[in-house]
């Protein structure tokens, strides 16, 4: 029960702090986007190639783009207050529907990549810490440095060349076999096959970070007095690592993972482009090119919410991992 109480207190505080944060993000983003040259009408007219001044003015008045900036902001906030993200002039559909189409793809990709990254990173980092200074540690250090420094689009391309072109094991892009009418488990397996390569290329960079972080954190914990106490109890080295060292060493890793959820959204743009994965990152990119600011604002709002949720989750995990945190 005290654990639940601690978690509840943490959640309430996070929620209260989230409201002004989100409002600030929306307003700031709105003004930042106004600084970009051109608007949706300009781009649409340019693409059509036959716009007149009258038709552009008509477009602008239809989407409210001719109003003063503050009035536009007022409209947007009014929409938000009614739980609407507005209407995309370019796609001709509500922004919420547009995002709802793309969000699951990105979320699964991120979740998959983050899980791979944390699992592999912690395992490799524990290995490195156990063999600190010896050959396994040196070898893994070289690999982690390599993955840390290679850009993810290049890893993505090389994985396609190797696993799709040469070996033909995995599909090179897309999110599922087109035209297949699979259901149940086969459908999930089919999806997973398409996800392996993009998730791996997104994850490798983070694997490197978590491995190094786990190594450093475990080496630090290893020298603490309570580890000596654990050995003095007669525990095996594995028991000491699993029960005493790892849990204490995980705290900095969860902090980093929480911060990376926001960063992964950005990194996903590149990977989604390489693997033509229909996700949020590519939608954001297209929205920028089309000056479709309502869509972009919607995505930014959603990302900020995602980061806030991730931070709250990290807070809860912290309160669970470290009893001293909730006590303050």
């Amino acid at each position: 029960m005290p654990a639940l109480l601690r978690i509840g207190r943490t959640l309430r505080r996070t929620l209260l702090q989230a409201i002004p944060t989100v409002l600030g993000i929306v307003i700031l983003n709105f003004f930042l986007l106004q600084l970009a040259p051109g608007d949706a009408a300009d781009v649409m007219a340019g693409e059509a190639g036959s716009a007149t001044a009258e038709s552009m003015a008509a477009l602008r008045s239809r989407f409210g783009l001719d109003n003063p900036v503050l009035v536009q902001l007022g409209h947007y906030l009014n929409n938000l207050a009614h739980f609407s993200l507005g209407f995309s002039p370019r796609y001709g559909m509500p922004v919420a529907d547009l995002i709802a189409q793309r969000l699951p793809g990105t979320l699964t990709l991120m979740a998959f990549a983050l899980t791979i990254a944390i699992l592999l990173g912690v395992i490799l980092g524990s290995l490195m810490a156990s063999f600190a200074g010896r050959i396994p540690d040196r070898l893994l250090s070289i690999f982690s440095l390599l993955f840390y420094s290679i850009p993810s689009f290049w890893i993505g391309l090389m994985l396609i060349v190797f696993f799709s072109v040469k070996l033909g094991w995995l599909p090179s892009g897309g999110a599922g076999t087109i035209g297949s009418r699979l259901t149940g488990l086969p459908a999930i397996l089919d999806k997973a096959r398409y996800m392996v390569l993009p998730a791996t290329s997104l994850a490798l960079f983070y694997v490197a970070i978590y491995a190094r972080l786990t190594r450093a954190s475990m080496l630090e914990v290893k020298n603490q007095d309570f580890v000596r106490t654990a050995y003095a109890k007669g525990l095996t080295p594995f028991g000491v690592t699993a029960r005493h060292i790892l849990r204490n060493a995980l705290i900095p890793i969860t902090t980093m993972a929480g911060m990376h959820i926001g960063g992964m959204l950005g990194g996903a743009v590149v990977v989604e482009t390489v693997y033509s994965w229909p996700g949020l990152g590519r939608l954001a990119f297209e929205a920028v090119m089309g000056r479709d600011f309502t869509v972009l604002l919607g995505i930014l709002l959603l990302s900020s919410l995602l980061v806030i949720i991730a931070n709250a989750a990290v807070d809860i995990i912290h309160a669970w991992l470290d009893p001293r945190i909730g006590a303050r």
Binding site: D225, F226, R228, T229, A232, H244, L321, D322, P323, R324
Partner: peptide, 14 residues
């Protein structure tokens, strides 16, 4: 064995 530092000789998260 009992160690010198009771402050740090116990695991803080257990």
């Amino acid at each position: 064995m009992i160690f010198q530092e009771p402050m740090t000789s116990l695991n803080p998260v257990m």
